[in-house]
Simulated assay, not measured.
Amino acid sequence: MRQSQNGGKRVLIVGGAGYLGSILSRKLLSNGFKVKVLDVLMYGREPIEEMLAHDAFELVEGDMRNISTLVKAIERVDQVVNLAAIVGDPACTLKPADTIETNFLANRALAEACKYNQINRFVYASTCSVYGMMEGDEKLTEESSLNPVSLYARSKVQAEEGILSLEDENFSPTILRMSTLYGYSPRMRFDLVVNTMTKNAVIDKKIFVHGGGKQWRPLLNVEDAAEAYMRVLQEPLKNVKGQTFNVGSEEQNYQILDIAKAVKESVPNAKLIVEGEEKDLRNYFVSFSKIEKTLEFKAVKQLKDSIFRIKKAIEDNRFSNINDPKYYNVEIG
């Protein structure tokens, strides 16, 4: 059973101004946590601007790869959530050295600093991409073999192993393997599959599916993702210490083509274009029974509702320049 009181616990969110972090920061503040954010603010401070005046919010602007910045960030915190990473295959391919430095080396250094300072609860954001290419048709559980097919996924596997190896009586890491996120956020992204398809459907009246679209992907709304992190922070430590959880919804394991069809239902005048041979080796159908049983976590946000919300935000001109680089973790053509 989850704790009902958060007791003013101070949580450091590394990457707290990002797509997921800006939502998680708000959610924790509204549930009685004190929130400290370490973020390089690569995409500006607008996503967290409204929180800066909150008495329980603190911002440390800087890069986690800088040791002095990292040490300052972990001062006077009880728990750490690490969301910071170079995210996704395209961005990692463009910056391989930065990927290893940020996704593996800096993550390991942060975990070691937390252990040294006896910050016991440490939550690390990994990815279901570590499963890579599914063999057979069985659902992938936390015990399934890892088969990463990209630098991004390999860096996450290395980080998981490094962090879990530090576990002892004073350091209790939890690994969350995230589904592909979608939905509206204060730090909006249009380089995630659902968001990208919706944007292209509304703006260009085209929905592209590359490689046939038969690949499986687990999806999760970003607001549900934030709820999962809060559940881990509220759970008695003995239930999450040293544990790995797939985070998502079994009902939201989708084939890429079916995602495109869901977008077309909301934007019927868009043309669905399926092209090319299978090039993306990633293909994984994931089980989420462990997090449902242990944390009583169940996704509540639905894909179609989220597509409609993004569509309406675009139509209402919520984004002054939808091609602004701040909406993308990788440069667009």
Rank of each mutant, 00 (worst) to 15 (best):
L41G: 08
L52E: 15
N200H: 13
S150D: 10
S144H: 11
S25F: 00
L281M: 15
M188C: 09
A153Q: 04
L24M: 13
V40T: 05
R154A: 14
Y327G: 11
R231P: 01
L192T: 02
F122Q: 07
I307P: 00
D168N: 14
D89V: 15
I310K: 01
E143P: 02
I307W: 07
G18A: 05
A260W: 06
E101Q: 14
N317V: 10
L164I: 11
R231K: 15
S30T: 15
Y254W: 14
L83G: 02
S249H: 11
A201T: 08
F33M: 03
F190N: 06
R231N: 13
A111W: 01
F122K: 09
S320L: 12
P325L: 04
A84I: 03
N6P: 08
S22H: 07
G62P: 12
L70Q: 09
Q79F: 02
D316H: 10
E250I: 12
G32R: 10
Y328L: 07
K206F: 05
L28H: 12
L94C: 10
D39Q: 04
G88I: 10
N170Q: 13
S320I: 07
S320Q: 11
A111T: 07
K205T: 04
K301S: 14
Y254R: 03
N317M: 10
V123Y: 02
I100M: 13
E61R: 11
E277H: 04
V11E: 12
A106N: 10
V222K: 00
N82T: 04
E112S: 12
V80M: 08
D191A: 07
M134D: 06
L83C: 07
M188K: 06
L192R: 01
D305R: 10
V232G: 05
V80A: 09
E46W: 04
K205H: 12
E112V: 09
R45G: 06
G212P: 00
T174G: 07
E315A: 03
F285R: 11
I307A: 01
N323H: 13
G212I: 11
T174W: 12
R217Y: 02
V14W: 00
L28K: 09
D305C: 09
T294R: 01
K139T: 00
